[in-house]
Design a protein around this nucleic acid. Sequence first.
DNA 1: AGCACGCCGACT
DNA 2: GTCGGCGTGCTC
Length: 728
Amino acid sequence: MNGTPDPGPPGPGSAAADPAPTAGEQLELVRLELKKARSRAKPRVSPKATTRHLPVARVVVNKGALVIDQFFDYSVPVDLDEIAQPGVRVRVRFGARMVDGRREGGGLIDGFVVARLERSDYPGSLAPLSQVLSAERVLSPELLRLCRAVADRYAGSLADVLQLAVPPKRNRAEAEPSPEPLPAPARPEPGSWARYPLGEAFLAALGDGESPRAVWAALPGGGWGGAGGADAGWVGAGWAGELARAVAATLASGRGALVVLPEGRAVAQLDLALLELLGAGRHVALTAEHGPEERYRRWLALSRGSVRAVVGTRAAMFAPVADLGLVAVWDDGDDRLSDLNAPFPHARDVLLLRAVEAGAAVLIGGLAVTVESAQLLHTGWARPLVGERSEVRRAAPLVRTVSERDQANDAGARAARLPSHAWSVAREALARGPVLVQVPRRGYVPRLACVRCRERARCRHCAGPLELRGAEDALCCDWCGRSDPDWRCPECGADRLRAQVVGARRTAEELGRAFPLVPVRTSGRGEVLATVPDAPALVVATPGAEPVAEGGYAAALLLDGWALLGRPDLRAGEDTLRRWLNAAGLVRSREQGGSVVVVADEGLRPVQALVRWDPSGFAGTEREERAELHFPPVSRMASVTGTPASVQDLLSLIRLPAGADVLGPVAVRGGGGRADAGEREEQERVLLRVDPGRGAELATALKAAQVAQLVRRSAEPVRVRIDPLDIG
DNA sequence: AGCACGCCGACT
DNA sequence: GTCGGCGTGCTC
């Protein structure tokens, strides 16, 4: 405790110089003797002198706790002076306490050096850095800034975000040199970007080093966009070629590019398109499938600047791309783009933060357009990149609706449990190629409703929603728990509910019996097929698991509308349309005889949008509606979940921004966060809503309240989620 | 978050 | 008179 920048810890010999202990210090002396005996037994390296040049290392410790979300200063021993550069991984002693002028206790924890300083503003004495793990500067100033911004936006701690952003060290990969960087490639030809009136201009702007920002309603089909150009026969993923060209154009301008996609199969498609366009060595793919070491090797190639483009799944949103010129997200409505770890950042939003920070171009694309994208268009921050109606009509399959009440009137259709129109479309299409059948995912059970009039099934005692519970699917109230085996619809008297999701496997069996000569394949949870051959087959898949058919599907049957649309979720309509478009986008164009049958009420907006293939119009309307209702993404929301008492406690501590709404609390089902096998306590959730532009204030307030709660230990900690995905 | 210090009840 | 409850505060 003095003014010198670095008193440093006393050397081992200094204990001998201690004054004789008074009687009151006897106990302390015994403890000290024990300590000394222990340190003699395990000899320690004697503390080195502190370096004179920039003797202070500011460190971020890798501990998640919200309450210690701050930097700590350490002194730099001379022998670590060279290597302890900003960005390196270090180990430091943390949590020690001063006893008799010495540090006692505390453990070694990991961290990163964020800066070297002339002096510290910490009034106490500094502990020395214990260890520098390597000279690799993994946490660049830009990455640190990004992590800080993400932590702030999501009311999380820097350490939490660092854990997502910087992969664990792998010695072997780090010891290897990264390849020499290749020179920037030539500008690509526009390829299938020619399908969009503004496509070539967008590509040219990227090539010129400009930073256009676009919301891209991708056209289905369009070929792989290989070297030949717009059309090499059919098939499928024109979007992959288009994304690849955007990346190539950005590289051609001498800048880096980053693309995040929802799942590994989409990454593989883009990876392939890039290989075809640019050859090897100009990009890397980052997905979980490569394993930690290879992943780290690729991450280092980016970090060291030897590769300038990356495509990957959500964790790639933090990839250290140098001189970022383009960020792109594909299918940004897919919830897999939201990280599963605190503070749950979403790839789209992280990439937008990066684009703003770096002045980079933005490309948010998908067959569907999200409401979030529509909001970017509405404010004029991004421009639409869409095909003309004539092009849409050419590229999309023919979509027909069939009512759910359309009874099958022939035996084959009944056996397959298909409406007769769907049955005849399938039978006809199977002569020409594979047919995709999209079925609901198990566990995607919507609220129960009367099979005839669709009135919600409610408890006769408390009017709570009925649900199916247990292995025997007993009908129970979700609120009071009473069972009601003899339910009858109070409106029409029907005694049947629709709810049971017939699993993909059983649907496949039934279809197999109905079409005995055709092979049936399934793709869903458990086993996901990437592709199917261009041959007659029934392909039964759950949403998101549809394989790509090499020649395009001859037809698709979308049988899951009631389940998708029936979900008690604000995003049900948007999400349903997105899943339908993604399935329908795998079908041949109308010109090539491709058709889609969707089993749903044709009056519903998502159904109409699919029939007209109008994702942009749908998103725009949806956005307006949300704006009127003060729903996200126009207003911003956060959810707070925990025991009733802890939620109440947090509400009492929080200083909400002006005009904030508190919605709830409402009871929520447990099972959400952690897997506490023990007692499942009642959980409640409140939604906090603020006006547009007040999201940052809300995040700050939430973080402060959470810190106060943690420090006071006034209640069990709550779980906070900014931009929650599931808001009923 | 850990971890230790510190000030009030039931026991040898 | 002690052992131990967890309230409070700190960690470079």
